[in-house]
Amino acid sequence: MRIGFDAKRYFLNKSGLGNYSRDLIRILETYYPQNEYIKYTPKFIGLGDDTVKTPSGILASTFPSLWRNKWIVSDLVKDQIDIYHGLSGEIPVGLDHTNIKSVVTIHDLIFLKLPHLYKPIDRAIYNKKFRYAVNHADKVVAISQQTKQDIVEYYNVEDGRIEVIYQGCHPAFKIPKSQEAKDQLRRQYNLPQNFILNVGSIEPRKNAFQIVKAIETLDIPLIVIGKETKYSDSIKKYIEERGLQGRIQLLQGFTMEELSTIYAMAEAFVYPSMYEGFGIPIIEALYSGTPVITTRSGVFPEAGGPSSLYVDPQNIEELRHAIEKVLQDSSLRQKMIHDALEYVQQFNDDKIAAQWNALYHTLS
């Protein structure tokens, strides 16, 4: 099979949808090399890779967004693509008028679930693109049961047209870390001996401010790793007002190998997010052998499994109590770590790759 991918995020996004795209194509190329995987992107910095396709001709090169959204169809036909996979909620207009089958991955519908977090124009654009994709793709794939339920609810898509295939994570998180590697990283970045961890963009939906408030009376440092937004300013102001500068660090810019080592160093991973399509940081923590505390509703129990502790993300006292429990009860910690490593095996690369290969074959 010749499978084409919307690879814009593969090349241009360093996290989130970019990680999803890179991990999926990586595992397919590893476990099913007999297929051909062609990456279509409006922009590519590199040379000599015949599996990467960019806009050709003056018009397409001048208007790469139009090429990606519509004009790319003629290139897909010319390249004899069998299946085109929109990795981030979009497929090109008019693809359904060709013999090329299509798949679209829907990660979340946050702009519909929490509309106040988005500008009206952004909501309108996302809604138009997603609605078109789920109604015209031959197969819709949700990254969780929660996202599948949202697609059915908001777009009235027939349940049988939607398949759930979970996402995995970077292999760095699955490699045990030596004490020497941890100590070296601790010295390099001046990290505390013991700490709890939160990873993700520092924005209102992720709710990191609640962790700051929850640990204010606890004797444990907090490290928050992620891209900063205006929301970060309110957190920094609170930290300064309460004299917490020595206990709370907001960091970013780590390599995947460094980040996976920090996960393995943490006493607990705390993730009181309000809503996610899946919550890949939870999976990263489970693979790292780090106990997880997260939100009890939505997708989070689906990602965290029976071994994690669940809280109301708006209840600071409940969150504080859960953190204390994990830090003080060593037998609970060991059980959480042991059970989590068993649960997370369902997200292994070979299993996810097999599901995707089987789905592609149903369309070929």
Rank of each mutant, 00 (worst) to 15 (best):
I106Y: 01
Y271L: 08
I235F: 10
G279Q: 03
F347E: 09
I211H: 00
K213L: 13
E257A: 12
Y271K: 04
P64G: 05
S65T: 13
R26L: 00
K139M: 13
K119G: 13
K148D: 01
I223Y: 02
F347H: 09
F269E: 03
V199W: 03
T294R: 08
I235A: 11
G168C: 09
I223E: 04
R186D: 02
D183V: 00
P64S: 05
L218N: 01
K177L: 02
G89N: 10
A60E: 14
R205C: 08
I337L: 03
R296E: 14
E267Q: 15
K230I: 12
V141W: 02
S234W: 11
L95P: 06
H107L: 08
E90M: 15
Q145T: 12
Y20C: 07
A137Y: 03
R333F: 03
K148P: 01
N69L: 11
K237C: 00
V224A: 14
H85S: 11
A285G: 06
L95R: 04
P176D: 12
Y40A: 12
I83C: 09
S308D: 11
G246E: 13
K119W: 06
K230N: 15
S364P: 00
L95V: 14
D50N: 15
Q334H: 14
K139T: 14
R123P: 02
H170R: 10
V157Q: 13
P92H: 05
E203G: 06
R187C: 03
E324W: 04
V326D: 05
P204V: 03
A340D: 13
A208F: 06
K113C: 04
